[in-house]
Design a protein around this nucleic acid. Sequence first.
DNA 1: CGGTATCCAATCAGATACTG
DNA 2: CAGTATCTGATTGGATACCG
Lengths: 117, 117
Amino acid sequence: MTEQNVIDKPEGYFTCPVRRTLSVVGGKWKLLIINELLVSPLRFNELKRRVGKISQRLLTAQLRALEEDGIVTREVKNIMPPHVEYRLTTQGQSISEVIEVLTTWGEKAIEQDTQQQ
Amino acid sequence: MTEQNVIDKPEGYFTCPVRRTLSVVGGKWKLLIINELLVSPLRFNELKRRVGKISQRLLTAQLRALEEDGIVTREVKNIMPPHVEYRLTTQGQSISEVIEVLTTWGEKAIEQDTQQQ
DNA sequence: CGGTATCCAATCAGATACTG
DNA sequence: CAGTATCTGATTGGATACCG
């Protein structure tokens, strides 16, 4: 187990629903990763390209954490060169509800940003 | 302007709704803070007590950031001892939509956690 | 009460090199 | 291609002291 795999389960994790959700999707990158995987399963480098400025090391760590939380699956095809595909589980797909609300709220905010200029 | 007041607006901030939302509510504490303020306006120490293990310094920094993003207002009553009240703006209250979905998702997850034992 | 300033430890995160 | 290992700098966050 690497250093990043130790997912901190914050206090109140079992009892507070908001904390429970944040323990899975919290952090800078996880929602962005899930957002990309909602469209289609992706290979490591393709995912990296789409998420943006994330480093290889960080992306690996985030994906391992999401795997451990049952959000994504990692399928390794034993060929050369390697082919690893990341895919949302059923649970992972259910996070689309969260993303939708974030999207709606963000769209409104952007609208207001542009009106103020 | 203190060090923590420099809010990093990530790349794609203006165009990607998810990133736009995360730039406001992302981070370990902001959603938990907003969650408490949704119930009622709170004074600094009361808020600190409810949010949990957050340090004074961090809470201050998060509140300043939320203020700068138009999510909370800070009202100082000039009496002794000081009385500072934090309150959600209309925009801040609109984040309740986000919190609701996080709550719903978290409740389901907790349900599944307990069934597996 | 509600902060700010300072110091320091822990953690995060990028760059680079290397590998099955 | 999809990682891991290592080193290093940046950032976060706690503890403490002090202040209006």
